[in-house]
Each structure stands twice: as structure tokens, then as C-alpha cells.
Design a protein around this nucleic acid. Structure first.
Lengths: 218, 218
DNA sequence: ACCTGAACACCGTTCAAGT
DNA sequence: ACCTGAACACCGTTCAAGT
């Protein structure tokens, strides 16, 4: 195992890239149940090489998810200085839903892998950070109710994604419609206040899925 | 294979019951990844018997999900003559979220199995039918916006369930809060109308997951 | 008519041998 | 330092033999 940050040997680096690309394509076409054998073959490497780069299939999936989340966060940052703050935030939500419809298999995985993986955790925090700023601006503009937090909005978004991946590919209009409902729930002024306090990132990270359950238990 | 409706032999019927109970318990404790071996053992039968009753592990899961959906529909019907129609509908939504939190593994499965299975399809239609009536009454009472349909509401509900199973077991207040947001999105009068038309049951059933992909393809 | 468990197929993962 | 593919382990599913 090479020290943490030393750059990979040129061919190794290339293999890693190829594996990520192949995995992305295969998962997109065949779903997450696609075998690692196909991915390795498509990347032109042996199965062993796959597991050298990604100790587990889950890690391979996680690596792709992280890439996507980072892209989303980047896009969100470009919206930070838009004139219409509320439109910017909803545009961000739109984008994220669209992204997940491209290859829904990947985002299905987030539910499983979720925050068990450190890199996903970091990327996730990054997305929440951007959304938090977009939301704050929209609230300051008076178009979005003041008693919601970024995690609230992300929960709603996850709901839209879920519904979208369930059956909205038939008709993208359904996604638009569902987003309209989310917009309505976030509109200011709020008719009745929300109970409880806005969940924090810490709340989310505390609610981890059951521990990895390593087969080592006696 | 016995003719469709002939009652099973007494011991066979008992084995079927035991399998369902064992499966429910095991899935609840260990999640859907639990092995069929453990289920068969817990039920006190051989693995072959399991597959005689449920041709595939998915079918076993589906059978449990169908049971739960039927229970939910039954409960919904008891709410049909409540005095406060809106409260009745939201009570129904509450119940369904609570149910899915009991053993979330099962409802996670609905996303996979979803409408691929005929029995699930029927039970699903039943739930939508009840929800449709609850909704209609709530709309007539003037407390719920008129431009949403039962499928819209079910989509929102699925979002809540998703969010709940992701991290709400830490604090049930989060679910309450999310339901408050759903309530806000459904409140009458609607500030801005929804785009598109309410999705129908047919729309949902058209949006099936990729075909079973039987390994028979040449 | 139904039950059983050994055997099979499939797929994620490891590792000894190579370069 | 990295690659490879045969071998292993695990688990869903089948089926020949039993009652």
C-alpha cells in the first residue's frame, strides 16, 4: 500500500480512470446489479485490478456518487450570485433531480452507502453547504419561508428524486409537478409554522444505517 | 402444480404461514440481505419448501409487502366516515409512515419489486383507491387544494417515507416536521396552480422498472 | 402431494504467480 | 509497484430421492 498521497504510477492512474468510466457506463445501462466482471472487461483490466483500486464494489459505486455530488455542488456555487435568489435555489433543485434521472441507479445507491463512507460524507456536507447558502439568500429575499433549513429542503428533494425514479421517466412533467408542490410547501409566508427545529447536518450523520456488520461477530 | 384455488394440504398451509412469519422477523432484524437459509431454518422447513411456496426470494418479500398494504388499506377505510376529512387523510398518511418505520426493509423493497408483481399491483391500486376517497372528501371540505390527485399525494408520501428511513429514526420529530411540509404543500387555497394534470394510476403502471431481464436473452 | 438437503450456478473477493 | 486470472466463499435456486 503506497503512502497516502504519492501519485499513482502512470498506467495505474489510467486504469483507475478507465474503471470509473466503464463502471459508470455499465451501471447506467444494466443497473447496479451488473457484475464487476463486465466492468473490468470493459475497462480492459483484470478483476484483481478493480479490487486493488476499489476494495469493494460499494467503494466503486461510492467513488462515482462522490464525483456527481461534487459536480452538483460546483454547479450550485455558480448560482450563488444570481439576481433572483429563490429562482436560483429552485434551479439548483431542478438540476439535481435531472442529474439523478440520467443514471438513477447511482443515486439509488446513496440510500445504501449513504453516510457509511467518509468521502460520501464529505461530498454530502459540501452539497448541504451550498444549498444552505442558496436557501439563506432565498429566505432573505422573502420568497421562501424562514423556518426551514437546508436539510429540510434536501429531504424534500430526496422525495422528489425517489418519486421521479419510481415512475417519472414516463413523463418528465410529473417531476415538474412534484417540484411545484415542493415550491408550495416552501413558499412564504407560511400559513402554519413547522413543529420542531430544523434538522442539522449532525442530526443526519447520527442517523446512520446499521453498522457494517462485519462477518467477524462471534 | 395444483389447480389455482384448491386449498393446500394442512401441513403445507402451516408451512406457508410459518415461512411468512419467519421471513418477516428475519427481514426485520437483519434486513433484506438476510439469507433464505436462515428463514427456512427459523420456520423449521427445508430450503426447498421455501421455494415451493415462493418461487423466488423476491416473491417472498412481495407476499409480505402485499399483506402490509392490505392492512393499510383496511385501516384507511375505517377513516372514511370521520367528521374532519382533512384530519382523517393526514392521519392515514401518518399511519403509513409509522408502519414503514416499523420494518423499513420491507418498504425499501417496494421500490425494487414495485409493480413488477401482479399482487403488489392489485394491493397498490387498493391503497390508491382508499386514498382517493379520503382525498376527495378532504377537498370537498375545502381544507385541501383541489388540483392534486391521489397519486400526487402518494408521491409526496413516498418522499416522506424515504426521508424517514434515511435518518429519522434518530428523532421521530423529523417525520412530523416533514409531514407538516407536505401539509403546507397541499393546503387550500393554492397560491399558484400546479402545472400539468394529476397523474393517474395508469401513468404509474406504465412507468415500470426495466423488464425482469430474464437470462434467456440470446 | 409435499418435503428435504445435496448439488449447481452465479458473482464478489482473494491471492499466488507473473512483469 | 502493479497486473492477472484461477481459485474460493457465499447464497439463491433446482432437483432427484424420499415420505
Amino acid at each position: 500500500m503506497p503512502p497516502e498521497d504519492r501519485p499513482l504510477r502512470a498506467d495505474a492512474e489510467r486504469n483507475r480512470r478507465r474503471l470509473l468510466e466503464a463502471a459508470q457506463a455499465v451501471f447506467c445501462e444494466r443497473g447496479l446489479d451488473a457484475g464487476v466482471a463486465e466492468i473490468a472487461q470493459r475497462a480492459g483490466v483484470g478483476r484483481g485490478t478493480l479490487f486493488r483500486n476499489f476494495p469493494t464494489k460499494q467503494d466503486l459505486i461510492a467513488a462515482i456518487v462522490v464525483e456527481r455530488m461534487r459536480e452538483a455542488a460546483d454547479h450550485g456555487r455558480t448560482l450563488l450570485d444570481a439576481s433572483d435568489a429563490a429562482a436560483a435555489m429552485f434551479g439548483f433543485l431542478d438540476e439535481m433531480v435531472g442529474r439523478q434521472q440520467l443514471d438513477r441507479a447511482l443515486f439509488d445507491a446513496v440510500a445504501d452507502t449513504w453516510l457509511a463512507n467518509d468521502e460520501i460524507r464529505a461530498a454530502h456536507a459540501e452539497v448541504i453547504g451550498v444549498l444552505d447558502e442558496l436557501l439563506r439568500r432565498a429566505q432573505e429575499s422573502g420568497d421562501v419561508r424562514a423556518d426551514v433549513g437546508a436539510v429540510d429542503v434536501l429531504m424534500l428533494l430526496k422525495g422528489v428524486c425517489e418519486a421521479a425514479s419510481a415512475f417519472a421517466q414516463v413523463d418528465p412533467a410529473m417531476v415538474t409537478r412534484h417540484l411545484d408542490l415542493v415550491r408550495a410547501s416552501l413558499a412564504a409566508p407560511a400559513a402554519t409554522p413547522l413543529r420542531g427545529r430544523p434538522p442539522t447536518l449532525a442530526d443526519v450523520e447520527r442517523g446512520l444505517p446499521k453498522p457494517p456488520a462485519t462477518r467477524a461477530a462471534s
